[in-house]
Computed example of a mutant assay.
Amino acid sequence: MKAAVYYDIGDIRYEEVDKPAIGFGEVLVKMEACGLCGTDIHKMLHKTVDTPVVLGHEAVGKIVEVGDGVEKFKVGDRVFFAHHVPCFTCEYCIREKYTLCNQFKETNIHPGGFSEYIRVPRLNVENTMHIIPESLSYMEATLIEPLSCCLYGLKKLNIRYGDKVLIMGAGQVGALFCQLVKSLGVGEVFVSDISDYKLEKIKDFGVSGTINVFEENIVDSINKLTNNKGVNIAIVAAGVPSLLKDAINCVDRGGQVLVFSPFNSETLMEIDGDKFFNDEISVIGSYSSTPYEYDIGMNMIANKEIDGNKMITHVLKLSELEKALNMSTDIDENSMKIIIEP
């Protein structure tokens, strides 16, 4: 079978790889669509993974083989599945910190979603696999996983009716967060980015104001928009280290900052520590998603509470993954969400 294999920065090869064989409790899925995620982009730009490797985890497809012991699914089912599974019994899982579970990152699909066929292990089948409603296209279904990540992040925040929210990043994650917080009844939603195209496109989701950080100082802009109060919540939805410092300076006293993007490990920045004590602000991290969000996310997209089609700007072939990566990082390419098809 064919796969897009990541070897090094600037070196992605569309090549022949072994088609995976399945065992007890497993299924083989023909990939029909896989979203290009911000974490995939981060891994390929900074080579934070061992190579060669097939990345991609926002994958959906059709079951073509079913292993012994599988009872809930059959050949022909259109399915969503996640790549990581917690153990549900360790000290982290008991505290509902499922993504910190030692088993979580040890589990994975094989190979990644940027391949023609994917072996879904037993634990993933049992705990994360869902049949996609017929009303939901494969392309829309690729948004189940990132939406579930956003839902998991929002669980950690104390969002109140009428809150002012700043979303830093107008890409896929920013668009999903925008729709989610609006559904919770927040007051004003502001979005920042460096792309005029994305900032214009995200207006489709009812934002109160946009800020191009190439042209405006974000802290000054937020102060102006909020009568020098700041926002109640800032969500860092882009992997730019300086955004953390900006987010802390944009929130009001008692405000919350959700860190939702990876930064380079060598990143250093100065942060005003007095804001934690005197202003009682909170900085909260959120990584990935858990099995408790997938059915909620899937139903929200199927019920059109989340508009996925407005977010998808490009659909490319598996052989064009490197082109997709370059498009996603080029401000002049005018992309928001890129989907990979076989």
Results as ranks from 00 to 15, higher is better:
P262K: 02
N228K: 13
S195T: 01
N212I: 01
G285E: 05
D220Q: 12
D246F: 07
D204G: 01
S208G: 06
E215D: 07
G254T: 07
G209L: 06
I211Q: 02
N223K: 13
S221N: 01
K198G: 02
S286M: 06
G206D: 02
Q256S: 14
G273M: 14
L225N: 14
E266C: 03
E216T: 00
S286Y: 09
V231W: 10
I281R: 07
V191C: 09
N278E: 14
G187S: 04
V259P: 00
Q256V: 05
K182G: 09
L184S: 08
V181Y: 08
E188S: 13
T267I: 00
V186I: 07
A234Y: 05
F190H: 09
D272Y: 02
G285N: 06
G239S: 12
E200N: 12
Q256P: 15
E270D: 14
F205H: 02
G255W: 05
G285R: 03
G209Y: 14
G285Q: 03
D252A: 15
D193F: 01
T210K: 00
E188Q: 13
C250W: 05
F214G: 05
S208L: 07
F214V: 01
L258I: 08
D193Q: 01
I202V: 07
F260W: 10
I248D: 01
S195D: 01
E280L: 13
L184N: 08
V181I: 10
S265A: 12
I284Q: 04
D252N: 11
E188Y: 14
M269P: 13
N264T: 08
G255E: 10
V283F: 04
D246P: 00
D196G: 06
E280G: 06
P241E: 06
S221T: 03
I202S: 03
